[in-house]
Design a protein around this nucleic acid. Sequence first.
RNA 1: GGGCGGUUAGCUCAGUUGGUUAGAGCGCCUGCCUUACAAGCAGGAGGCCGCAGGUUCGAGUCCUGCACUGCCCACCA
Length: 920
Amino acid sequence: MTKEIPKAYEPQLIEQQWAQRWVDSGLFRAEESADGPVFCIVIPPPNVTGYIHIGHMLEHTQIDILTRWHRMSGHRTLWLPGMDHAGISTQVVVERELAKQNLTRQQLGREEFERRVWEWKAKSGGTIKKQMIRLGESVDWSRERFTLDPPLYRAVLEAFLRLYKQELIYRGRYIINWCPRCLTALSDLEVVHEERQGSLWFLRYPVVGSNENILVATTRPETMLGDTAVAVHPEDERYKQLIGKKARLPLMNREIPIVGDAAVDREFGTGAVKVTPFHDPNDFELGRRHNLPEIDVMTEDGHMLANAGPYAGLDRFDARKRIVEDLKAQGFLDHVENHPHSVGICDRCKTVVEPRVSTQWFCKMSPMAEVAMKAVADAKLSIVPDNQRKIFLDWMANIRDWCISRQLWWGHRIPIWHCKKCSTMTPAVNSDVEMIDGHARAASPPKACGKCGSSDLEQDPDVLDTWFSSALWPFSTLGWPDDTPDLRTYFPNSLLISGYDILFFWDAKMVMLGSRLTGRIPFPELYLHSLVRDEHGQKMSKMRGNVVDPLDWIEKYGTDALRFTLAIKAAPGSDISLSEEGVLGYRAFANKIWNAARFLYVNLDKFEAGGDTIDQLASPESRNSAPHRADPELPLVDRWIFSRLARVVPKVSQALREFRFHEAAHEIYHFFWGDFCDWYIEWCKPRLNSENREAARAAWRNIFAVYEAALRLLHPFMPFLTEELWHQLPQPAGARSIALARFPETPAAWLDEAAETDVALIQEITGASRALRADLKLEPKRKVSAELFISDPAKRKLIQDQIDPLSRLAILSEVSFAAAPLNTEGGQVRSVAQFEIRIISAETVDIPAEMARLRREKERLEKDIASKERQLNNETFLSRAPAEIVTGLKTTLTERQVELRKALERIAQIENSAGGSATA
RNA sequence: GGGCGGUUAGCUCAGUUGGUUAGAGCGCCUGCCUUACAAGCAGGAGGCCGCAGGUUCGAGUCCUGCACUGCCCACCA
C-alpha cells in the first residue's frame, strides 16, 4: 500500500483475489499448518445440490474462526469439507425437475433415474464449493469428500454389515410413517407435526344382536373402512358389558369384535375407539395385542383400494368427504365437533403422512444410546450450551428404533440379497464396492442363498436413510474402516459444531454409531450454534419473504463485515436476529480498520522522506524482538496500549475456548476502534511527526507493532481484510499468509495497572474538556485555555508530564494549574471528585441547559448518596459484607458527596447571579 | 400432555460464580466535511431490568407463583 489508497474500503476488489490465491496455493492443506497438537473438525456436509444460505454462513463462520485461531496457535489443523447426497431432498428436487417435463421416475426406471440425479449433481453440485471458496473458508480441499464416494460407500456397507451381524439392524413388518407423495417410509424425525383445525366425527356402530349403538369418535373417518375392532377400557362401566360382543361396521357391513384394552382413554371422546390396525400406530399396537387382522384400505399414494368398495380409487381426502356424507345419509353420523389436532406431514414435501404397516429395515438404538448417555455422564462428551445436554440425554433415554430403509433410488443400496425361492436374506460377502457408470455399488453379492443355496437372488431394493451415511462422517471421511494415517491422526475429531435443529438427526447418530463402530466417541465436544432469524426475530422462510442470501450482502458489504456481524451476534443459547443495518455497522468497522492503515501509510510517506523506511520501522524483528517495549522510559501511552492488548488477547482466547464468539468479537471491536483508533492513534499523532527523530522512530515502531498484532488478532474474524493489510507490511522471507502467522501472544509483563489508571484519568479530563467546549458551543478548531485543579498531587505531576497530548486531545492551547479548588464564580466548570476543570473563554453559557444538567446531576447524586448512606448505616451490612465492598462503598460515597457539594455550589451561584448571563 | 428458552434503552441484543453510577450496536438530538476514516469525529438524551411474592446486609443476576411469547418432544382416537 502506497500513495494510491482508496478512502473507503472496497472488499470486492480484494476478497475474490485472496480467495482464489488461498485455494490455488493449497494454503489450508493440513500439511501446511504447524506440526503441533492436532485440531480437526469436519464440516456438517451440506446437500450437494444446495447452496449456501445464511445458516451455513453462521455455522461456517464459527468453524472458520476456530479453525483459523487454532491454526494460528500452532496446531496441526484440518477442517475437512464435503457434501451430503441428501437422499430424499435431492430426489424430491430432481423429481420436481422431471415433473416439468411431465416425467416421473417410474417412467424412467431406476437406472435412468439415478443417471439423471448424477447429472443434476454434476450440474448444480459445484455451487456450494464455489461459494465456500468465495467465502474464504479455510478448508482442506485436498480432503474433500462426498457421501457417495466409493470409500464412503464402502464405509456405509461395512457399517451396515457389522450392525446386521450384531443384530442391531433388523427387518420387520411394523407400522411406519409413509409419505404418499415421496412413496417412501420416513423416520419419526422426518415427520413434523402441525396443529390444524380438524373435526371429530362421532359415529354410531350398531352392536350386533341388540338395538344398541356404540358411539366412537374419529378424526380420520376414511380409515373406518379398515376397522377390525372397537375398543373400550376394560373397567369402563358404560361399556364393559359389551366386551366380547360384536359391532357391525357401517358401510362395509362387516362384523368386528368389541375388545377391552387398558390403553383406551376413558376421558377422550366417547371412551370407545374404532380400531384400524393398518393405518394407526396406536391401533397397530392394540391390534397385535388382540390378534386383530390388519386391513389395508389405501394405496401407497393415498388412494382408496379396491376393498374400499364404492370408494375405491378415490383420493383419501375425497373419500373422507364421501364417507361422511354416506354415514350421515344412512344415519350413522351422530354429530361432529370442531377438533384442533396435530397432523403429521412429510418434512421434505409437506404432504400429510399416512401411517401404514410396512416391511422395513430398523436400527436398534437402545444399546447405543446407553453408551452415548454414559459418555455424557463420564464427561467424555461435553455438550454446549448446557440445556442442549439435557435435551440430548432426554432423547436418548426415550429412544425408539430407527427406520433406516427408504423406498428411494438415490442413496446407498442395502447390501442384502433376497432369495427368490425361499425368501431368506443373505448379506453381501464383504463391503467392497465397484464403480459402475462412474458411481459405486456393492461389489460382492452373495453367490448363493445362505439357506437353500439357490443362486436366484435379488438385492433389496431399498436405500438407506441419508443420515445413516452422515452418522459415519467423522471417520468415513478419514478412511475408515481402513487404519489410515489420517484416521489415526484426525480421529476422534477435536470438536463438532452443528445447528441444534439436527441434534437428533445427525449429532446423536454420530455419537451412537461412531462409538459402536470405532469404539470411540467421535468428538469430545459438541457445540450447538443458534439459528439465524430476521431483524424482528422471525424465522426466515420463503413464505415470509425474509430470506437473506448471504452472497447478496457480501456483494454489498463484504464477507468480512458479514462474518463479523454473525460472530458478534452469536451468543450461545439464543437465536440471532440479523438485519441489514447491523451488517452496515460492521462494514463501517472494516472501513475503520482500512482507514487506520491508510493513516499509517499516508503519514509514513512523510516520515520516510527523512530517511527511515518501513522495512526498518515495521520489520518483523522490530515487531517481535521489541526491545522498545521493555524500555522503562516507554511513553505512558505505549505502556498503556500494550497493557490493553495484553488484556484483550487472553480474553479473546478464553472466549473462543468457550464458544463465546460475541464476547471475543466485542473485545476486538472495542480494542481496535476505542483504544487503538480513538485514543492511541490520536495521542501518537504529534510524536509520529516529532522533530526528535529518535522519539518519532520509537513511536513508529510501536504503533506498527500494535497494529500488526491487532491484524493477527482480527484475522480469524476478518480474514480477507487482514490478509490484504498484513501483506503491506514487511514480512519474514517466505511468509505466505497471515493465516499461517502466530496468533498474538502477550506476556503478562505487559500488563500495567498504573498506566491504565493514569490514562483513564487523562481520558476523563479530556472528556470533561470536550463536554465543556460543547456546552460553550466553541468551534472545534478554536483553541482555548483551561484551568485545572487536581486534588491528588501525584496525579498533578502526571498531568503536567502529559500536558501536550492532553492539550491536543482536548484542543486546548494552554493549561494552567490551580493550587486550590476552582472558584465556582469564574465561568463554566466541570468537576468530579478527582479534578475540576474550567475552560477560559468569553462565550456565554446556555444557562437553562446548564441548570437542567446540574439538576439532573444533583438528583442522581442525592439518590445515590442516600442509598449508600442507608447501606453504610446498616449494622448487618457492615458486619457481613466483605471489607473491600464496604471500603469501596465508603470511598465512592465520599466522592459523590464532594461532587454533590460542587454541583450545589454551582447551582447556587447561577441562581444568585439574578437571571443575568453568566460569563466566563 | 411433557420439556426448554425468552421478557433489560425506540429497535435488535449482551450482562460468566449476587456487590459500588446496568452496557453495546443501530436509531434519535446538538455541533463539526478538524487532510486516516461523514461508512467519520465530538457532545448528549433515553431504562419501576415483564408482574407479584420470597431468600439475602445487598437481587437484572438465586427461589416460588403468574402473565405474555417462542421453540422442541409426544401414538390422545
